[in-house]
Design a protein around this nucleic acid. Sequence first.
RNA 1: GCCCCCAUCGUCUAGGGGACCAGGACGUAGCCCUUUCAAGGCUAAGACCGGAGUUCGAAUCUCCGUGGGGGCACCA
Length: 499
Amino acid sequence: MISKTQPARVRFAPSPTGRTHLGSGRTALYNYLLARQTGGQFILRIEDTDRKRYVDGAEEELMEGLRWLGLSWDEGPDVGGPRGPYRQTERKEMYQKYARELIESDHAYYCFCTQRDDTLSAPEQHQQHRELCPTRDLPIAEADARIAAGETHVIRFKMPRGGSITVTDAIRGNIIVENSTLDDYVLVKSDGLPVYHLAVVIDDHLMEITHAIRTSEWLPTFPLHGHIYNAFGWEQPIWIHPSIFLKPDGKGKMSKRDTEALLAEGKSIFLGDFEKMGYLPEAVVNWAALIGWSFDDKTEFFILEDLIEKFSVEKLNPSPAAINFSKLDHFNGLHIRALSIDDLAERLRPFFERAGYTVDNAKKLHQVAEVLQIRLANLAEAPEKGGFFFKDEIHPEPESLIGKKLSANESLEMARHIQTLIQSLPDFSEDTANQPLRHLATKLGYKAGHVFSFLRNALTAQQVSPPVFETMTIIGREKVLERISNAIATLEEIARTSP
RNA sequence: GCCCCCAUCGUCUAGGGGACCAGGACGUAGCCCUUUCAAGGCUAAGACCGGAGUUCGAAUCUCCGUGGGGGCACCA
């Protein structure tokens, strides 16, 4: 049982090698939740030791993504902190010092082998480095001399030949691995920078990390990390390995090709894309939290504050989970509906503006938000569903103004009656306008649907729209009458040519 | 090939020996509500991978299969 009262020091440690995935977002989220729940610290550490894969701007996008989700960190490269620096390339000297310690305690050795030895036969290529390396047991003094002479080298962990190691994951229990299946992993590269395995151990130790959350991709090298801890004689954090996300069909993890295919169908798993696709950070958080974690057998709607209170490592699910975009849409709808109208209005504003509409009337925006709220699966569809509210002129399809099974002349006649009635109405509320319009339909021998359908098309130029009365109220008397007379003009035109 | 992890409806999951002829959610279908679309309400179909054990009793424990996933870099 992981204590909720002992402050947890946790870290999210991504490498700036590309765009930030939803999976990273979830890992960051779980870390954040544990820190906030226990009153501990959430640390952001940039693992940038791979200079070849470094992508400019990735760090910025990553931070933006975390901020968008609402995950704030207490220590990190931008805000600093007592255990910095928080960028691994800035910690180079520390790693070298500790690596030397490992050499001197005979847990590691200098290796001068070339990166890929083509003189090796095929079977030898598959042999463990441990069995091949000529300098594995070279005296340190001799190795130092070769290094001083400028010979390129790496530092490798000296994996025991026999025995086994037990490492413990909080959601999977003990994992026992034979050392014979492990090899002499490189710890420090020839460029002098550590590889992940060394850096993570040293950093987590020095930063006093109490819980290390990372995905199950790290399980295969988990035993190595255990060995490194043992070599240093350090106490390990509580390890937590949630499973990775699988692509929507459940067949394997997301590849570059998959993410591109997703983009092509208007979906994305990049944190940086959700906002402009109309998703609320609240929905993404809710959705991601529930992939691989659950609270109970019925509660699914959570905001960040709920999750801080309710998250528990014990309820993490060890099996891999396929992501489900329709569930994201569902959560987005729930969170849109949970927003206050004012909040929704302000979040909608940029979407209307980006679509080219001028939104200078706050009251109108508020009304539009109110009427759109239950009709939106995401914010991005607002202009398409409610753009007509902001247009000066609309152009309904002429055919759409003709009632079902009615002639143009009949429709025209009905439209004129509607116009007269609307003009005489004190206002457009459902209470005052509904019955008169229905009576009108009955009196003329049409269906109520004919009347409403005409109004809908005349006022919105859409077959599908918010309810007519609310729409009329928002559009306003002047515009309503203008659009009706425009529609009548169109009908007159049609009636002239094909009555 | 070798190593590791995992295994309940199509998907996400509840379940930690009897409360389960297995509950919830998404999606799907139908119905209700209704001026369209939604939202909401109701209903339906839909799963314990297989085989041995352990036990009075197993979705739950053990083992073996099988299946799925991950990893085998001087990447993280």
